[in-house]
Design a protein around this nucleic acid. Sequence first.
DNA 1: AAGGGTAGCGCAATCGATTGCAAAGTCGAA
DNA 2: TTCGACTTTGCAATCGATTGCGCTACCCTT
Lengths: 361, 361
Amino acid sequence: MGGKGAKKTGGSVKAPGGKKVAADKAQKPQNIQDLARIAGVSAATVSRALAGTGNISAATREKIRSLAREYDFRPSNTARNLRMGRTGTIGVIVPLGHEKTQHFSDPFFMRLLALIADRIAERGYDLLLSKVVPHDPEWLSRQVDSGRVDGMIIIGQSNQSDVINSVARYYDPLVVWGAALAEQIYCSVGSDNRLGGRMATEHLLSLGCRKLAFFGDPSVPEIEQRLEGFRDALRDKGKGAVGTNLPVHFVPEQALEDISGFLDMADKVDGIFATSDTIAMTALQALLDRRRAVPKDVKVIGFDDLEIARRTVPALSSIRQDLEAGADALVELLFRKIAGESVDSVMLKPQIVARGSTTCD
Amino acid sequence: MGGKGAKKTGGSVKAPGGKKVAADKAQKPQNIQDLARIAGVSAATVSRALAGTGNISAATREKIRSLAREYDFRPSNTARNLRMGRTGTIGVIVPLGHEKTQHFSDPFFMRLLALIADRIAERGYDLLLSKVVPHDPEWLSRQVDSGRVDGMIIIGQSNQSDVINSVARYYDPLVVWGAALAEQIYCSVGSDNRLGGRMATEHLLSLGCRKLAFFGDPSVPEIEQRLEGFRDALRDKGKGAVGTNLPVHFVPEQALEDISGFLDMADKVDGIFATSDTIAMTALQALLDRRRAVPKDVKVIGFDDLEIARRTVPALSSIRQDLEAGADALVELLFRKIAGESVDSVMLKPQIVARGSTTCD
DNA sequence: AAGGGTAGCGCAATCGATTGCAAAGTCGAA
DNA sequence: TTCGACTTTGCAATCGATTGCGCTACCCTT
């Protein structure tokens, strides 16, 4: 291996006239060929060494790898993707059922998205982020058929479960954050919403609340499941307690109106289960406007347990979703699907976090 | 558009029979060659027709384009990127000065990020999202040298202005959201923080506040500028008013401690200017804990004017940053730089939004 | 009718990594 | 020393779009 062994070319694969670089050391290798020349092997060997595929002697592999390290060389992703017939991109898509931008800037999405982004980047993939307002049933197939991604993560099925189902029938690499529905054929990751709903409700009941309100729009699947949990708890542990449901909008202004109107007539309410921390915040606001003390007169519990739950006055009790585990699962399952495996949906255990909005400390 | 003018295929724009296949041979063209065969031209011509480059007759161009539309064909991004020597990806990177994850899930970043993502997607580029904790001065050059992106947007220079400067010296396609600093050689987009600081402070002064506190850590450049505005206003319009600065942490728990400690000893404070809405929220919390009425005893104003400002109790006055214009500018400038143009930094005008935390309604 | 000009299009090389196949090299056993 | 049986490595095709260069018509002059 010592003599360089230039056969025919006389060492002149490129720029023989010796311009460009005087010494044969050259600058940083720009591609796998350059590195091959430096190492005195062929491009194929470099490829195998770096990828760790095929049969290659440990000696050459390490030699090439250390050269790559020395020159801080990384093979082109684009070329690899072209050759391997993939795009190197994962689509992350947020369908906004009815509402517009507010929804997207909800801290909940940000947190989940940030976690997902990290996991995807760790695997060397890019992220194509899009939020779509599903005007027509084609919104998802358009994204899928664009051929710009190797797989898709959908954050929240909203009311689009049918559309997702119909695409999942022919497009496999697809995972969804959200509720696990009976009729779904796609793979989903989400909290056990029903259990979470039950936990929150039992918490309120155990603190003596007897007139409960559920704040949330059950036309969204996750929320419907939480409502079921709410009803379960009332039925099993309610003994005389009553509950009602107020379908609160996601848009904050609208939500405040909805809630204010409700509270003005429902002055006996002593426990509120809001299906998101942001709705719970709005409820706190409306209650304080009406001089109803929290938690003395009314106890409030939210859902998600985001940062903001710790910063309201009083601090908000909430049902915590394990978003880290959720992001892990979403990305892990998606890559398994891309690899052709078949995988099962994942359901995460929620956890209750009691703070000042339900317990006097 | 009436006659359709189907020449050889005898088909129509879509699904002629019941099948959509059958009639025309071949399924969807998978690449430019397939489409060329269908159109009876060479791949080169298809490329030129679709890209709108080179000399091509209007007739063939339209013919090919309509074929592409008919088959819903889109040329491979990967191959184009390889050939054109680019990656088709924009890096968006959030340096976290000292703090960790909390920072990233701040609603402020989410909102800006979402807007940026849209603008990038509109141009057919992908987004590579990374948050980095700058342990060493190499964090940025590593990202840049990885060669995975055509340009970078940095959200917030944090205390890393030097590092960014040193990279900007050799890497041009780089724009930064944040303060405009005297010594910076890179291109930035941000609000006029000094003016914003002045506006907030004058607002408090005009409402009769005389003992002002500035909550924010001035080691972050944006915040230092707001602090300057605070001092400007005190000097020009203060007549007897005094001000002080409490360097509040970004991490919420820590922030609450900082603020609580301060409020316990500074019981004469009657006006607080917090440099973010999240800090302002924490201040509200601490004040209410201490039975200091807002806005009666103490007036509070925040910065950013995010969603949450409307949902605190009382609703938060704030200095609004025009993030939509900011995202537009960031992306526009970046692509201009990628195209080789030289561009100037952009400074946005902030705007004051008065709500219940400063004005009794 | 011949020659210059030009618009329109195709040929083939190219971007950089991967991989099936074959050639070269290594080692031990007969 | 020779002959498999492997193990390593190189050759060359390939992924799909782009583009410099050159060829072919066709139009207009003269």
